[in-house]
């Protein structure tokens, strides 16, 4: 006499096919995926999914491609935990599970007509890439576009081909830097932490919104530089990394003060973050 409920479980992953697997470096792989039911993911740039490997578990992964790129979507994944390591062993044609998209994503409509200053540190480039692609696909809707991209060393810079294509456009400015450049490494860009790029950029603070993603340690310094440039607190937008286990505001792992990053984030503006006591920026 077990009572069966018909309501669908919020935990059921949707079968999703790996249609392309491209190594970005020794540690990161770009996966191109398509839901097996034929639907698009219908995500907003900046949202994330729970990637599921049955028998291993789930991991929250930001979506690295724009919804303007078609029904397939991309996840760029560094192998750091059980799930991401298992993902790295998969081949095109394999099936995984996807739940989501989850989270708020970037405030796309608020960004229309704005000058955008993207600031990416390391694999913080992945969530920003969804928005950069979106902006470039919908280019007339936005103002001036600058991308600052910093990595620890040249070998860690990813998406060379894409960066090269963007560099060739005259409607987007790319500036990159590495923290250090080992001897005999080819590198033509700046050397120094990402904040060393700030003196070289020209922005109109009233027109500019900054979009920031990177390692947690980067945020404090980047926010300080943005404020110094005169960008308003509400116009400094950061994507945060937390341990979203359920994605639906229940499990508690991603909580910052009373904010659930999986529901209220992962994208927050600095004016909001400043009010959270557990965030020290």
């Amino acid at each position: 006499m077990i009572n069966k409920s018909n309501s669908e479980s919020l935990y059921f992953p949707r079968p999703t096919k790996l249609i392309d697997v491209t190594a970005l470096s020794e540690r990161e792989i770009l996966f191109r995926l398509r839901l097996e039911d034929g639907n698009a993911l219908y995500h907003i740039p900046g949202q994330f999914v729970e990637v599921s490997i049955l028998g291993t578990g789930e991991a929250p992964i930001s979506i690295a491609s724009s919804p303007t790129q078609g029904d397939a979507f991309e996840l760029a994944i560094r192998a750091v935990g059980n799930v991401t390591q298992a993902l790295h062993r998969l081949q095109p044609g394999d099936t995984i599970g996807i739940r989501g998209p989850f989270g708020n994503g970037f405030p796309v409509s608020e960004l229309k007509d704005r000058d955008l200053l993207f600031i990416a540190g390391g694999i913080g480039f992945f969530p920003l890439r969804s928005m950069i692609q979106y902006v470039l696909d919908m280019r007339p809707l936005f103002g001036k576009i600058i991308l600052l991209y910093g990595c620890r060393q040249p070998a860690e810079q990813l998406f060379h081909q894409e960066l090269k294509e963007w560099r060739e456009r005259d409607d987007v400015l790319i500036m990159d830097t590495v923290d250090r450049c080992p001897p005999e490494t080819e590198w033509e860009g700046n050397v120094g932490v990402i904040t060393t790029l700030f003196p070289g950029i020209n922005i109109l603070p009233a027109r500019t919104t900054a979009l920031v993603a990177g390692p947690p340690v980067m945020y404090r310094y980047v926010v300080a530089e943005c404020l110094k440039k005169g960008i308003a607190k509400e116009r400094i937008i950061l994507s945060l990394e937390r341990r979203m286990k359920c994605g639906i505001g229940l499990c508690g792992h991603c909580q910052i003060d009373n904010a659930y990053v999986c529901l209220d984030g992962p994208v927050f503006n600095y004016a909001k973050l400043e009010q959270l006591k557990e965030v020290e920026l």
């Binding site: 006499m1 077990i2 009572n3 069966k4 409920s5 309501s7 479980s9 059921f12 992953p13 079968p15 049955l54 028998g55 394999d94 099936t95 599970g97």
Partner: peptide, 16 residues
């Protein structure tokens, strides 16, 4: 679930 390549998710929603 089964691990034989295909996801087959059986509902465990229910209560005594």
């Amino acid at each position: 679930f089964k691990l034989d390549g295909k996801i087959s998710v059986d509902s465990m929603v229910g209560a005594q």
